Simulated assay, not measured.
Amino acid sequence: MHPLVNHLRESLLAGDVETTRASNHGNAAAFAEGREGYLFGLPPLKAWTHAEVLAVMAERVGIDPDPERSTGTDVIDPEKTARALERMRDRLTLAARRQERVIVATGHPAGIIEVHMAVAAALKAAGCELLQPAAGVPFERPGRYDGRELSLAVRYIGGVAVAAEKAIALWHTHSPDGMRAMLAELEATGAALPDLVVADHGFAGAAAAAGLDVVSFADSNDPALFVGEAEGRVSVTVPIDDNVQPHHYWPVSAFLLEGVLGAMV
């Protein structure tokens, strides 16, 4: 058994997670229907049926592949999470050794941002160039929450891009517009694009759509990045509950950074 499995189970990062079967089943259907909010800025290369999306999620996440079951509980296989984290760790180690140009971004400023901030700090300490383009640049389209329209803009917390409502609050977002603004600014100024993007949600999807090397995190009800990985457009997608209490991610960060810290010796 992988050494992280017990922690993943006990913290509900994987195993019997709180994400429901209804959410997994319904979001897979919405993705298959091509509904924009579920694509994360990464439309698939071909049409995927609902059953095919669930099959990909069963293979890469561990959920039930049965398209007829839409209620009850579901799972993230912690062994699949651990193996994906190993692949992400290898890519981060390579970035540190090469001292690559990197963007780190998250749509979850109250959960898995804990990992993103640790990764950003470690890669910077290893000599990587941590890019922070388009700071303060508004998203092309406003976000919405409980029927309220939000004016979102790119903001950096510990070197990690997030969605901010002016200078008031950070927001959960699936939008690809933030990453699109970031890449557009790099191109407009003639700056080189990043060698690696570490992200989730639409930040990861838009980067993958632009042909960049992306390693990402995604919950069991977010199929876009797993399908992107299946299509060869996302290098790694780690199946994990991406919005539990931030301190539960500390062992995940420590595991990911083993190789980065070794590259600094």
Rank of each mutant, 00 (worst) to 15 (best):
A153V: 13
V154P: 02
V154E: 01
R155H: 14
G159L: 06
G159I: 07
V160A: 14
A164T: 01
A164G: 12
E165M: 09
A169K: 15
L170Y: 10
T173V: 10
T173A: 10
P176W: 04
P176H: 02
D177T: 02
D177P: 03
G178Y: 02
M179D: 01
R180E: 11
A181P: 01
M182N: 02
E185G: 09
L186Q: 12
E187F: 12
G190H: 10
G190W: 08
G190M: 02
A191T: 04
A191K: 14
L193Y: 13
L193M: 14
L196E: 10
V197E: 07
A199Y: 00
A199S: 04
H201T: 11
G202I: 00
F203M: 03
F203T: 03
A206V: 00
A208M: 03
A208L: 06
G211P: 05
G211E: 06
D213S: 13
V214Q: 01
V215T: 03
S216Y: 02
S216W: 07
S216N: 10
F217M: 10
F217P: 07
A218D: 00
A218S: 11
D219Y: 01
D219W: 00
D219T: 03
N221S: 13
N221G: 01
D222V: 04
D222R: 12
P223C: 13
P223H: 14
A224Q: 06
L225W: 11
F226I: 00
F226T: 00
G228Y: 06
G228V: 01
G228S: 06
E229W: 02
E229H: 08
A230T: 11
A230P: 04
E231R: 14
E231Q: 06
G232A: 06
G232R: 07
V234F: 02
S235D: 06
S235P: 08
T237K: 09
I240W: 05
I240R: 05
D242A: 13
V244R: 15
Q245G: 13
Q245V: 11
P246L: 13
H247I: 04
H247A: 12
H248C: 08
H248A: 13
H248K: 14
W250D: 15
W250I: 15
V252L: 09
V252F: 06
S253N: 12
F255D: 04
L256H: 06
L257I: 00
E258A: 15
E258K: 12
G259S: 07
G259V: 04
G259E: 09
G259R: 00
G259D: 05
V260H: 05
L261I: 09
L261K: 11
L261N: 08
